[in-house]
Design a protein around this nucleic acid. Structure first.
Length: 509
RNA sequence: GGAGGCUUCGCCUAGUCUGGUCUAUGGCGCCGCACUGCUAAUGCGGUUUCGGGGUAACCCCCUGAUCGAGGGUUCAAAUCCCUCAGCCUCCGCCA
């Protein structure tokens, strides 16, 4: 077998922002679709029938139709629930909403009142400063025209004012800083439909595909590490030797498999109108803080003390920071980016969990989708991201379920989160492979990203969704598509990027 | 790592030497109105962003902040001083 130069996309979209608005008209998308179709037919006679896992024939759900149906039945289109804490005026008018949200998350409810009282102090000190400063400016203007006694008197009074203004200014700044500091501890308002409860209280939205019955097939499934080692694809011993536990090498076909997954994922995203991106993995505190990762998630983040920089746990961070401090014209929305990047996670507090293999690691690569949309479109966009994730996992022919994550298990930035969990045969349960969050205006307020809608300038909504987190996808692929002889069936979508291979074969010892 | 230049309300730009008349100039773009068979052209007006107050709310009115960021001098800072960041040019090192 020869190594696998994947066919590159024939042409990238010339104007990516435009293509995002009209995905169906995108030339690159068509070219990529062609490439995919030209892949070899997938029938492998010796195998169990694949239809078993995706009854109804169509292995990849028709994303457009399914999406339309979903959006129409959910009444989500154009509807924006009042969201996004961080807007002080909203908080003042309806503090109960924020209190309820905090309660549902199991977070500090009193924080809301702390914010409100700090805000009150901020506003009264601001009034005091404004008045003093105004008087100072008015008197100051008279000085150059004044003479003698009058001038001396003016100088005396403005001299007094000067120190009063400074004091008022300091008090105002102090109150404003305290307000901000408290306000930023508040998590996003949860969406009203999110199931209330802890980690176990999610609801299952749907189940796609059916797990294989290995007993019926007459053999015991091996786990991903054993399979990966037999394939010469995964080396965790040397990962530990060089970098410590939860590090690994992908070797040989394992390395090629990652590249195939990444290429296929980027191809799907490009076809759907996303602008492909490669992003910085090191970011400033502002980007990390603005995306909401320095709150409760802070213990999971790597920090470089010497440089005061953070290693990103997801390219969501640089993709959200990308438009920091910008005002985006409404007609440029939605903006959709798909980034490939390394991700770093300390995995503090997960000692002893998922210690075998590469399911939970400190460093991995991921293709991530990210959207900027008008606030009223966020729910619809959330369904779209989910649909693209479903399309992806379906194209890999993995059985999975979609869950609506419960309030207590949401990240601080998410108003709502859907996870796609793939079946892991040797664990006998569904495990998270992708996750998509609707962050409403939470991140855009914190990062000062706004949209211009006619005469109005207002915050917009940001959303993110995993397309392909590589190690976990490899875990699911190896385990679900393993054969009795230790080989692994390759789904057709990956074959163009693996030199046409239909299976990964164990290497001789 | 070293030296120099630069950073002004979407874009370009005046202003910085010599602090107050800067409520930041002009052009482009954009929005509105007028005029005009249509288009174009022209004329007039508007156009940074954020906070606070007035208002039931909008329009609007009053007010403060904002000239890369922070600090300092001063009655008063785009303007003077210090620190930092970013961009550009050159030098050194380097995949």
């Amino acid at each position: 077998m020869r190594p696998t130069p994947a066919q590159p996309p024939a042409q990238l979209p010339r104007e990516c922002a435009q293509s995002a608005r009209r995905p169906e008209a995108d030339e690159a998308g068509r070219a990529l679709a062609e490439i995919r179709k030209s892949g070899k037919p997938e029938n492998r006679k010796s195998e169990k029938p694949r239809e078993q896992y995706f009854p109804g024939g169509s292995k990849t759900p028709n994303s457009d139709k399914a999406l339309q149906k979903d959006i129409e039945s959910s009444g989500v289109r154009g509807h924006r629930y009042p969201g996004g804490v961080i807007d002080l005026r909203q908080l003042r008018e309806d503090p109960d909403r924020a209190r309820a949200s905090q309660r549902a998350r199991g977070e500090d409810v009193d924080l809301v009142d702390a914010v409100l009282s700090a805000d009150e102090r901020r506003r009264s000190s601001s009034v005091r400063f404004d008045e003093l400063r105004s008087e100072q400016k008015q008197l100051g203007k008279l000085i150059p025209k004044a003479e003698g006694e009058e001038k001396a008197e003016l100088l005396r009074r403005t001299g007094e004012l000067s120190s009063a203004v400074k004091a008022a200014d300091a008090e105002k700044d102090e109150a404003a800083a305290e307000t901000q500091q408290l306000l930023r501890q508040l998590s996003n308002l949860v969406h009203p439909d999110v199931p209330v409860g802890g980690e176990e209280d999610f609801t299952v939205r749907e189940t796609i595909g059916t797990p294989r019955d290995f007993a019926a097939e007459g053999f015991e499934p091996k786990d991903h590490l054993e399979l990966g080692q037999k394939l010469g694809a995964i080396d965790v011993e040397r990962g530990a030797k060089v970098s410590g536990s939860r590090f690994y090498f992908l070797t040989g076909i394992g390395a090629l498999l990652e590249l195939a997954l990444v290429n296929a994922a980027i191809a799907q995203a490009t076809e759907a109108g996303f602008t492909p991106m490669l992003t910085p993995a090191l970011v400033k505190p502002q980007a990390m803080e603005g995306t909401g990762f320095l709150g409760q998630a802070a213990q999971d983040v790597y920090h470089l003390d010497k440089d005061d920089m953070y290693l990103v746990g997801t390219s969501e961070v640089p993709l959200a920071g990308y438009h920091m401090d910008e005002i985006i014209e409404a007609d440029r929305l939605p903006l959709r980016y798909a980034a490939f990047s390394p991700c770093f996670r300390r995995e503090a507090g997960s000692y002893g969990k998922d210690t075998r293999g590469i399911f939970r690691v400190h460093q991995f690569d991921k293709v991530e989708m990210f959207s900027y949309v008008a606030p009223e479109d966020s729910q619809e966009e959330h369904r779209r991201l989910l649909q693209w994730e479903k399309q992806w996992l379906s194209s890999l022919e993995l059985p999975f379920q979609v869950i609506d994550v419960a309030t207590g298990d949401l990240g601080s930035s998410a108003a709502r989160k859907f996870d796609c969990e793939a079946w892991i045969p040797t664990q006998g349960k569904y495990r998270e492979l992708t996750s998509t969050s609707d962050c409403t205006e939470f991140q855009s307020r914190r990062l000062s990203i706004r949209m211009r809608d006619g005469k109005n300038v207002k915050p917009l909504a940001t959303l993110n969704g995993t397309l392909c987190a590589v190690p976990r996808t490899i875990v699911a692929l190896l385990e679900n598509h393993q054969q009795e002889d230790g080989s692994v069936w390759v789904p057709p979508v990956l074959r163009p990027y693996l030199g046409g291979r239909e299976a990964l074969e164990p290497v001789a010892k």
